[in-house]
Design a protein around this nucleic acid. Structure first.
Lengths: 186, 186
DNA sequence: GCCTGCATGTAAACGGTTACATGATTCG
DNA sequence: CGAATCATGTAACCGTTTACATGCAGGC
């Protein structure tokens, strides 16, 4: 039921890593849709070893590094989870939408600020994705590439939708309040 | 910092309600991007009263109902929060994308199953939104309507993006693996 | 010598869900 | 009469983040 373990197993399935490296790699690869903190990583690595899903080997150098590797049992547990249907996620909370929903209580200028910042965030995300896409060309032969690209395209699609929505909503906030436009006497 | 309080204040700002009603109303209005459980609602309502942001009045009927109403202090606290910039959200976890990212480890059929279910969920959400949009026509004069519609359009845009992505990704999974298609000897 | 980055870990606090307990009312 | 719904609340549990503590290595 705990999903952190599968994120770690998935990463270890690609290559053995230390806890520290797992954190970095998670950030740079699945960072736009998944996050883990050390407070989770280290205890769960210990668990995985206890359950026989991973092994540790302490590097005999001075810097003290514990390199974790996936076992066959770990790989089959990973596969089991990968195939298992996804429990319909309860809606994650969206603070922007909540503020907008209650928007009648505050000035339109304040709401526009939220929307502009959201659009900027979407643009920044899209720029990041473009950079990643370029970097991924180096992996042309990697069998993982199609899957990595699919997650990237998800991000692109959603961020484009958000940006379009923000633009549209900014326009709507400027448009005449409702119904007939206030007719000027002529 | 706790956002549940603002969800409750926002709802109470519309009209006084019981804890039970708050739960129902949150589900039916902001349910697609916000959720609250009784375990949060009741204790926090108590807090709000202690802080002077809301008042309770116990209905003198037999069924024991506690009706909460927002105070002026509560309203100004709500406004303060509504205007405050949104802390850049850390990416919420997306289990589907994580499974897809590690997709090379399992069969394409399994992955297609995930995508088909996701597309179905998107379609179902879009159908719900269409229903809500119809129902909202009754609120034509309500000053809240433009904001409610804006949150609805967000849902539509994002779900459409997700559906489009799922279709595209299903196609990609069927397409020849990578590079040149395996040339048949002729 | 100091700062940054590599590296490991823990404890406390937090926010939230789930399950449980209770009881009245209403409708079939 | 029994089931569903209205209604209030608490306790346990869970996953996660944050802050803290430690120490080595390498470059400025």
């Amino acid at each position: 039921m705990n999903k952190t373990r599968y994120a770690l197993l998935g990463m270890l399935n690609d290559a053995p890593r230390t806890g520290y490296m797992l954190k970095q790699d998670i950030e740079t690869t699945v960072g736009h849709f998944w996050g883990e903190s050390y407070g989770q990583i280290y205890p769960i690595l210990k668990q995985l070893v206890a359950e026989g899903l991973a092994t540790v080997s302490i590097s005999d150098g001075k810097p003290l590094r514990k390199v974790y590797a996936i076992t066959d049992a770990g790989r089959s547990e990973l596969r089991r989870w990968l195939v298992e249907p996804i429990a319909s996620a309860q809606p994650s909370r969206n603070e922007l939408l909540l503020k907008l929903f209650f928007g009648a209580e505050v000035s339109k200028e304040a709401l526009k600020g939220h929307l502009v910042r959201q659009r900027e965030a979407a643009d920044a995300a899209l720029a990041t994705f473009a950079g990643i896409k370029d970097a991924l060309q180096a992996y042309e032969q990697d069998p993982n590439l199609p899957y990595w690209l699919a997650t990237l395209r998800y991000g692109e699609r959603v961020q484009e939708a958000v940006r379009g929505w923000a633009d549209e909503t900014l326009d709507a906030l400027d448009a005449p309040p409702s119904g007939a436009s206030p007719r000027r006497y002529s």
